[in-house]
Design a protein around this nucleic acid. Sequence first.
DNA 1: CGTACAATTGAGGTACTTCAACTTCCGTGG
DNA 2: CCACGGAAGTTGAAGTACCTCAATTGTACG
Lengths: 218, 218
Amino acid sequence: MNRVFDRSALRGIGTLAQTMHVSAGGDAPLDRDNATLVYIVAGAAKLIARAAIDREQVAAFNFADDIVMVPAQGAHAYLLQALVDCELLVFPYATLRDAVQVDPAVLARLLDNCDNALNRCREKALVLGRKTASERIACFLLSMAARIGVASGAAVLLDLPMSRRDIGDGIGLTIETVSRQFSLLREDHLIATQGRSKVLLLDLPALKQRAGYLKNRA
Amino acid sequence: MNRVFDRSALRGIGTLAQTMHVSAGGDAPLDRDNATLVYIVAGAAKLIARAAIDREQVAAFNFADDIVMVPAQGAHAYLLQALVDCELLVFPYATLRDAVQVDPAVLARLLDNCDNALNRCREKALVLGRKTASERIACFLLSMAARIGVASGAAVLLDLPMSRRDIGDGIGLTIETVSRQFSLLREDHLIATQGRSKVLLLDLPALKQRAGYLKNRA
DNA sequence: CGTACAATTGAGGTACTTCAACTTCCGTGG
DNA sequence: CCACGGAAGTTGAAGTACCTCAATTGTACG
C-alpha cells in the first residue's frame, strides 16, 4: 500500500492535523471559507456539492486511505458527509501545501492523489453528460467494484455503504430510476442483490458492455 | 500573473518539454498510454472525453497560461483539440512530477493548478447532474465571463472560441437546446449576440439568478 | 413483533432530444 | 465590392427517456 501519509510523513505534518470522528450520516465540521484536505483513516464518506437543500450532486465517494480535497464554498456549498462512522485527519489545504515543501516526495504524492481525483471526476462528467440511465448504473457498479469490490469466484461482491438516493445523487438520476435499473439488471441476471446494501456482480463482461466503454481498447 | 512555469522554473525543466503547434480544429498528438501535462502558451483548446465517435463530453475548456492534465486512455479516450491555433508545451506527467521535486515551489504550484482543475470539474459535475438547461447555459456564460470576459461598462463581452456544439458537449445538451436557450436569453434581454461568437452579457445579476447558485452566500 | 424508513413498482407528466426545414453567417472567388 | 456556397445556427413539431407523484412491498432495528 502506497499511503500518502506514511509514518515518516506524518512525523513532519502531524501537528497540522486535526483528528475527527464523524458518525454515520453526520457532516464533517470543516472550515467553509478555506479549502480543506481530509485523509480518511477509516470509514466511508461522500463529498457533496449542494445547489439547494433538495438538490445536491455527490462529487465523489471516498473510502479508507483516500484523500479528499474539499473546496471552499463558492457558488455552491461542499460538504463531506459520513456514510458510516468515520475517523478523519483534517488539514487546512494551504497550510499543508506550504508545510510539505520540505518533503517533495509527499508533495508529489499529493499531486498524484489530486490527479487521480481529477481523472475520476472527469469520468463522472462524461457519465453525467452523455450516458443513459442503464450505462450510468453499469459505470457506477464497475467503478465501485474497482474500489471496494471483493472477488468471489468469477463474480464480485459489493457491500455498498450508500443508499439508492446517494447513488442517484452520484450519477444524476432519481432514486426511482436507480431502483428500476437495478431491477432490470436483476432480470437479466447481471447482478443479484441481497438486502439493501449487498450487490453481487455476476457478469462483469456484460456490465462493461452496458457501461458504454470504448470498443477498441488497447 | 502567477505563472506556473516562469523563467526560473523553465530553466530546470525546459529540456523535458516538447513544443507543439496545433492549428484550429486539430488534435494535439499526445501519448495515449501515459498521462500528459500540457501548458498552453497561446491559443484555446478543449479537453474532450470520448465514449464513442458521436458521443463526447468536453471535460474542460482551456486558454492561454492554463495547464491541462490529460489522462491516459482508460475506459474512455481523452483528446486535446485546438479551438484556435495553439502553441503548446508538452510534458510526460510522471517525468515532470519526478523532475520538479528539486523545486518544491513549482511542485506546489502544480498542485494548486490541479486543485483548481478539480474544483472546476466538480462544479461541472453539479451542472451536468442537477441543473436544468437554462441554469446550465447561465453557469456556462458566467464561467466563461470569469475566464475570458472583457468588462464593457456594466456588461461583459465574450468572444467565444467554441461552437454551439462545443458548448453543448460541455454542458450536456444538444446544439438545438443550446440555441433555444440563447434565444430565450436574448428575448429576456440578458444577453445580446453579434455574429457567431460574440456574446454580450447585459445583466450579470439576472444571469446569476438563473444559474441556480446558492442564495445565502457569505 | 411492530414500527419507521428504504426500496420497489406503476401511471402519468415533462424537459430535453430527435428529425426536419429554414435562415444567417462568413470565407471565397468572380 | 458583391455574389455564391457551404457550414453554423435557428426554429418548429413530434418522440422519448427520465422525472414526479402515489401506492405497495421489503428491510433493519428497537
